[in-house]
Simulated assay, not measured.
Amino acid sequence: MQKGTKQSAKEPGLPPGTLSFVGHRRAETVRIQVVDYDGETADTFQLEQVDDCSNLAGRRANGWIHVSGLHRVDIVERLGRCFQVPPLILEDILNTGHRPKADIWEKGVFVVAKFFAMEPEEETLQMEQVSFILGGNFLISFQESDRPIFKPVRKRLATPGSRLRRCGVDYLLYCLIDLVVDHYFVVVETVGDRIEDLEEALFHGEGEDLLDPIHRIRRQCLFLRKAVVPLRDAVGILRREEGPLGSREIQPYLKDLQDHVFQVLDTLENQREMGTALLDVYLSSMSNRMNEVMKVLTIIATIFIPITFIAGVYGMNFQYMPELKWPWAYPAVWLIMIVVAVLMLLFFRKKRWI
């Protein structure tokens, strides 16, 4: 069973733009980490008070503000006011069951994506929502938990002379989304290995307890596909040349990102078909096994039909039955029964029924 797929429902009838957290609390406290960087320096610090975010707006240096934990609606609302984010976008950020998408408004870009990780021991799929708000020289990222999923990007950003230092926040947005997509490759590779193991177990006759794993694999492919298909459309929106990410510098990277999303989607389609094929093979193997059992039972019952007939004839207690007085009648009846059974087995073997 996939974890993190069921969300608490939002109260119906609320006005549009009403901020309400929809989801499960995945972090003990809300942490806000800020990275100010340019071509030469990169300063990282924790934002202790959300009121201090007003000092972040209007800086000349590029800024990356990462929020871990979404259960504090007041913090998200305060950040939205500091950076002039529309309430409808903040509402989508707090709704952790939102589908991936990309919206472009007059002051920036809003992107929603789903991050997936596979737990190898439990074979469960972990999912959480990540959201990004791109402004002029700042990028705000929101994450449900405090899992360090963006740690590789932080290391690259801390490396002097890296491309992340030299480029703007639009390239940082690309790197973060690309990291999310890279995790898709890890997950689909794990799912593919699991499908191969199930296929090998099926063809080796170990199919008694494989229905639940096969069903789990098919559901995992379905959840992944539901996240990748809208992400493909979102990347297509980001690639529009009239949008904020339409510069020539970032376009090749977005095209490469789109190719990766298409590759993940094609792999998922193949794996979903393989999962369906595995289910068909499993059901066919179970049906064949049942047919084998029924064939054995039918052969046994067919052999015993004439033997039961002979036993029934001599079980009739008529007074005048000459065989009852013969001294060799009992072994003769047994011999006849055995001969009949052997002849029927030879007949079945000749017909290749057994």
Rank of each mutant, 00 (worst) to 15 (best):
I217H: 03
I217C: 09
Q220L: 08
L222E: 06
F223P: 01
F223M: 07
F223W: 06
F223D: 09
L224K: 00
L224W: 00
R225A: 10
R225F: 01
R225M: 09
R225L: 10
V228C: 09
R232Y: 11
R232E: 13
D233R: 05
A234S: 04
A234Y: 02
V235K: 12
G236Y: 04
G236W: 12
G236E: 12
I237C: 08
L238C: 06
R240V: 05
E242T: 06
E242G: 03
G243F: 00
G243P: 00
P244C: 03
P244Y: 08
G246Y: 00
G246Q: 02
S247L: 12
R248V: 12
E249V: 03
I250N: 01
Q251V: 02
Q251S: 12
K255D: 07
D256T: 09
D256G: 07
Q258A: 15
D259Q: 10
D259Y: 03
V261F: 05
F262G: 11
Q263W: 05
V264H: 01
L265N: 13
D266K: 08
D266W: 11
T267D: 10
L268V: 01
E269H: 07
N270C: 07
N270L: 14
Q271R: 05
Q271Y: 14
R272E: 06
R272L: 10
R272D: 10
E273H: 09
E273M: 15
E273S: 13
M274R: 12
M274Q: 12
T276R: 14
T276I: 15
A277T: 13
A277V: 10
L278Y: 07
D280L: 09
D280E: 15
V281E: 02
V281Q: 03
Y282S: 04
L283G: 07
S284C: 04
S284W: 03
S285W: 04
N288K: 02
R289D: 06
R289N: 05
R289T: 02
M290I: 13
M290V: 09
N291H: 12
V293F: 11
V293T: 02
V293H: 04
V293C: 08
M294K: 02
K295P: 09
K295F: 11
V296W: 15
V296D: 13
L297W: 08
L297V: 03
L297K: 02
T298E: 04
T298K: 07
I299A: 14
A301T: 08
T302A: 15
T302K: 08
T302W: 13
I305H: 15
I305L: 15
P306D: 13
T308H: 03
T308M: 12
T308P: 01
I310T: 09
A311V: 05
G312F: 12
G312I: 12
G312S: 14
G312V: 06
Y314M: 13
N317H: 11
N317S: 03
F318Q: 05
M321T: 05
E323W: 06
E323H: 00
K325N: 06
K325R: 10
W326S: 06
